[in-house]
Structure formats: C-alpha cells, structure tokens
Write a protein that binds this DNA or RNA. Sequence first.
DNA 1: GCCAGCATTTCTGTATACAAACTATTCGGT
DNA 2: ACCGAATAGTTTGTATACAGAAATGCTGGC
Lengths: 242, 242
Amino acid sequence: MSSAWQDEVAAATQAGRRISDRFIVDKVRQAVLAQRLPPGTRLPEVTLGEVFGVSRSVVRKALTRLAADHVITQQPNQVARVRAPSVEETRETFAARRLVEGEVAALLAGQLDAETLATLEAHVDSEARAHAAGDEPSRIEHSLAIHHLLAERSPNRVLGAMLTDLVLRTSIVIALYKHSGVASCYLADDHPALLAHLARGEPEAARRCIHDHLHALERLLDLGPRETRIDLMAILGQGEAL
Amino acid sequence: MSSAWQDEVAAATQAGRRISDRFIVDKVRQAVLAQRLPPGTRLPEVTLGEVFGVSRSVVRKALTRLAADHVITQQPNQVARVRAPSVEETRETFAARRLVEGEVAALLAGQLDAETLATLEAHVDSEARAHAAGDEPSRIEHSLAIHHLLAERSPNRVLGAMLTDLVLRTSIVIALYKHSGVASCYLADDHPALLAHLARGEPEAARRCIHDHLHALERLLDLGPRETRIDLMAILGQGEAL
DNA sequence: GCCAGCATTTCTGTATACAAACTATTCGGT
DNA sequence: ACCGAATAGTTTGTATACAGAAATGCTGGC
C-alpha cells in the first residue's frame, strides 16, 4: 500500500509542513482517483498511520471526512474500505451531476470574466494536446480542472460545493467502470462547444451541452451485465447492512 | 447548555443503549433546528462530553460529522460553533433546494405506492391541525416529515441524500431568518396541491408546485438590511480565513 | 476429506495524558 | 482614562493505552 506515499510524506515533513488530516484526505482521494487504491481496498487505521507517520487520532479524523465525501465506507467495528459504487448508484450519480452541472453552467453563461475564460481555454487546449500525445493522466487532470473551475466559479456556492462532490464521485465511477476496450473517455468536441456557449452567454445551450456531454460519457461506460455479480456479492455478503 | 439533554442521556443509558457519536449528532441537530442552540453558540468538546457522559474522542467524531453536514463550523484550534449562514448563502440554499427537490418531485410523480401516499396525506392533515391548534413545533415536525419522506422515496438515491441535506439546511435558516412578525411559515394550500400532483402523476406540475412553494417560503423570510452588519463582522473578524 | 468449535491475532472503540494554540484578564505605562 | 504587553486559564491537537469486537487460522472429531 505504501507505494509512492512514503516519498511524499518525507518531502512534506522536510518542507516543514505538518502532516494533518487534510493531507491524508487529499492523498487518499488522489490515489483512489488514480486507481492506485482499487475499490474494496482495506484501509486499516494503524497502517495508514505508519505510512503517514502519524497516530490513529489523525487517521481517524481523515477517514471520517473521506466517508462523508463518499470516497470510503466505514461500518462499525469494521475496517474502512475504498467504496465501490454499484451500477445503479453510478447511473444516479450521473443523473444528479447532469442536473446540478447543467444549472451551474446555465448560471455561468455570459458571467465569466476574461481571465477565467482564458484559463478554461488553456485547459481545453492542454487536454487536447495530452490526448493527442496519449498522456491519459495529464488529460484527466485538465478535464477535471475544467469542471472544478466551473464549480468554483458558480455564482451559487451551495450548488458549487455539491458539484465539486459530484465531479469527484463521477470520476471515481468512470475509473471503475471504464470499458476495457476504450483507452480514454475523451469527447473531442464537447469541452470547446461548452466554452463557446459560456462565452457567448447562452444559458440553455450550455445546459444542453452539459447534458449531452454527460450522457455521452455515461454511454462510454460498461454498465451492463456485471450487475448480477455485484448483486450476488451484496446478498451473499451482508445483505442487511445499511 | 445542558438544558433537557441530561434527562435524555440518563434515559438512553438506562435503556441500555450506548451513547455514540450518532446519538450526539442527532441531538445537536435537533437542538439547532429547534433553536435551542442559536447560531454562534460555542460547543467545546469537554462540555459536550460531560453533558453526554462520554469522552472527547466520541465528541470529536460527532463534531466532524456535524461539520460535514453544515450544522457547525470547525476552524483549526478554535471552538466549534453553531453555523450562522449568511443571507447570501440562505438564498443560494433555497435555489439549490428548488432545483433538487423539483427534480425529485418530478421523478416521484405517479410513482408513489398507496401506502406512502397515505402517510403523506396523514402528515398534511396533521400539519393543518397543528397549525390550527397553534402548536408550531408539531406543525414543523410534520412539515419536515413530508419533505423527508420525499427525499427517502426518491428513485435517485444520490439526489435523495442531497435533498435530505438541503431540507435540514433550509430549516435552519428558516428558524434563523423567520420574520419576527410572522408566527409561522405555513402555506395552507401548497402541500395538499403538491400531493395531488404527485398522486395524479403530473411531473412538471409537481416541479412547479415545489418551485412556487419554496419561493413563497423564501419570501416569508427577513432577508433584508442585515447584510451590511454581517459583512462588517466577517471583514473585521478574520477576513483571510477559508 | 470436511466441518464445527476454539484460540489467536488483528482491528476498532473509547478514555486519558501531555503539548501547543488561542482567549481573556490584569497590570503597567502613557 | 486609554492602550499594550504579559500572564493565567481554556480549549484543541496529538499520541498512547486498554478493552471489546471481528476476522483468521488451527485443532479435534466425524
């Protein structure tokens, strides 16, 4: 489990930054997003504590926050595990994100300052370049940055925070259910089109653009026959939980 | 601060139920909703621990969860305090709830089984009776039960969970900004009308009903001139935080 | 060879101790 | 009388110890 964390911890401690729960939350989140911690991975408190060089108190706080962010599951007297959202929850997460991000995009149309638009443009370009170069991690990073910036700039901060959460959860399930045949969930025209609608101030077009984009993304996933296996797992495992 | 909690704690411990973080979270939430803990109230860990008869470990976990639920604020090295959402956040919370609850209602139209409809009907009736009798706490309880049941029955569980959170936050700001002149935020016709649309299976009518209901509710609040005072407080207090 | 029951080991739940940070008060100077 | 600094008092941050629950592995019987 330690993987590359040890180095980061060493670097951070040398830099004088104290390791806090925030640090652990970020690192685990990133690791889950990068699929370095696959769903179902056990996350014992002592082990995490040793990895990050802190005691269980700090780890516990981090785990509680990760559970609130839907990144892990925490059942009483049981080891925390990386969450594995079901196919059904995946569909529902996409639907929720369509609703929220569509509204945010509509609110944002025509309201973005030049600097933000330029930053978005830069991310779109970088994403295209990364895709062309076959650098998938970099492409994902820029794609996430686009949607994260939309959430941050949302005039309605409550919706913005909800969108941040949904973007994270969507990314996790994309990594989880990505069709093995498809190398990358990249839709070349969607982000540029969205940006154009936002810049031109067309709320409903922007909303529709988000809807189509997310529908297309969901269609790229492999949400088919695995359902039965997961159901069996749930039933034979611990059906009464939750 | 102890107020009536001591009794509840005693009753719970006698009943053999162990006091856990869940218990504390529920009690604090209810107390905030009932305005027994006004916004800004300090919640020191040791004090809460003494009230509930547990140590700081349990209290800390409860506080972390309450912070995740937007009930309290937790800044480093500072006492946890009951959150006092600003006027701006109040407006944004209402807007977010309109979006989410409107969608949930639309999804739910024509999909509710007879039993759920009957339960909803019962709550609507009880709410009207409580209002007629001037029993405001009971009225609020039934009103909350209606919206909470909608959130629970949402076909999209992700949206349902988000709605549960938004209903709680809306209730808190209603209690906070209720116009002093208005005794009760009760709109006699809204809930029955919503129920009719849900029963008859009219998605868009149900959505519009929710929108109108929440707009009317927001208009009943006193969201006027206080804004300047809050801004001054924030600026003179700790402007650079968050 | 297979299964039930028990022992061991692992892990979480909770309490407590000590250190660091923040708050408030008081005292001295102007 | 007012302002600033030092100090006493709270309150949180973190580590650690012990108890209880759950999972794992082992042994004995069939």
